[in-house]
Computed example of a mutant assay.
Amino acid sequence: MRSSDRPVPADLRRGRGAASRDGGRYGRLTRADEADGWDIPEDLPPLRTTVTEERPRSVINYVRSPDIPFDRTLNPYRGCEHGCIYCFARPTHAYLGLSPGLDFETQLVARPEAPQVLARELRRPGYRVAPLAIGTGTDPYQPVERDRGITRACLSVLRDFGHPVGIVTKGTLIERDIDILSDMAARGLARVGISVTTLDDDLSRRMEPRAPRPARRLKTIRRLAAAGIPVRVMASPMIPGLTDHELEPILEAGAEAGAVAASWIMLRLPLEVSTLWQDWLEEHRPNAKARVMGHLRAMHGGQDYSPRWHVRMRGEGPYAALVAQRFDRAARALGLDCDQPALRCDLFRPPPRLGDQLSLF
């Protein structure tokens, strides 16, 4: 029996997004909770978050995708305690032999040497500077960052090198790093995207159980904007038949908070995410399941998801076109449709190290 056929009891996974510990597409073993045969009452402990460490040889991941505006990323952590049930990065945990479900949000991997490795990579003679994206896989400001500080240390490296960076997050902990980000933004080296999926507190708590509530994210936009940091409000993912009616209110709230740009992406369900998402709908929004999945399949040729370039992010067909038109109209009316200035690459200079020959010019 697959573990997804027997979800972990709700009281043991309180505050978690997924319901099961299915091992994923590479797992040879499945896990299920069974009685041990002893007639002794036993209270099982709730799931706890554990953090292991990884020492990477490189931290800059180069991507070749025609439908994203960057070609390199950095992720200080694997897995994400925010537990967003719809997260497209969940399948990456299968590469570690872990579950894209509950393991993704409870068994995290930190990369404490990422700042040093990043500095080493930036010093390589053949390195060519271009904006680096942080937070494209897992959130760099999830709760573990409060104690680990790996994201902040990486930002310090980028600041010292004069390297451009774009950050995507739901985490309000980014406010801690306003000192670094405001300095970089003043030099045209930094911008931030804050994801606001819904303005409904109850829905957010169920879909994104350990992420900050929507109103708190809007306050983060306000604080970053007040510090001179360009912020984009990201109405992502838009969930057809569940949150897409909130598209305009989300953009309005973001603009009021000080965002200078906006973007949106349709819900994506790659690999194991589809099963996890449908299990979540069954538990939390059963009356919406047929409607949500019907719209998604209509946008992906009858499938839950299509990975094709230029289709995977938005879908296609009448419904996808309608959402895109609504976004364009609202963004234009709110002044969020303007192109942001390109991040500067001409300030990149590896800082001198002890013993380096100093330049005369």
Rank of each mutant, 00 (worst) to 15 (best):
H82L: 01
H82K: 02
H82W: 04
I85A: 05
Y86V: 03
Y86A: 11
F88E: 04
F88V: 02
R90D: 08
R90Q: 11
H93F: 11
A94D: 02
Y95G: 14
L96Y: 15
L102Y: 01
D103V: 07
E105Y: 06
T106E: 14
Q107Y: 14
P112K: 12
P112R: 13
P115E: 03
Q116T: 09
L118K: 07
A119P: 02
E121Y: 10
L122R: 11
R124I: 01
P125I: 04
P125H: 05
G126L: 14
V129H: 11
V129G: 11
V129T: 00
P131T: 08
P131Y: 13
L132Q: 06
G135I: 05
T136K: 15
G137Q: 12
G137E: 09
T138V: 01
Q142N: 05
Q142I: 02
V144I: 07
E145R: 12
D147R: 09
G149H: 00
I150Q: 07
I150M: 07
R152I: 00
L155P: 00
L155A: 13
L158N: 06
L158A: 04
R159N: 13
F161C: 02
F161H: 14
I167K: 07
V168E: 10
T169W: 10
L173Q: 12
I174Y: 15
I174F: 09
E175N: 14
E175T: 08
D177K: 00
I178E: 04
D179V: 08
D179F: 13
L181A: 04
A185Y: 10
A185T: 08
R187P: 00
G188L: 09
A190E: 07
R191E: 00
V192M: 11
G193V: 00
I194M: 03
S195I: 02
T197H: 13
T198G: 10
M207P: 08
M207K: 14
P212F: 07
P214G: 10
L218V: 01
T220E: 08
I221L: 08
I221P: 03
R222F: 11
R223E: 04
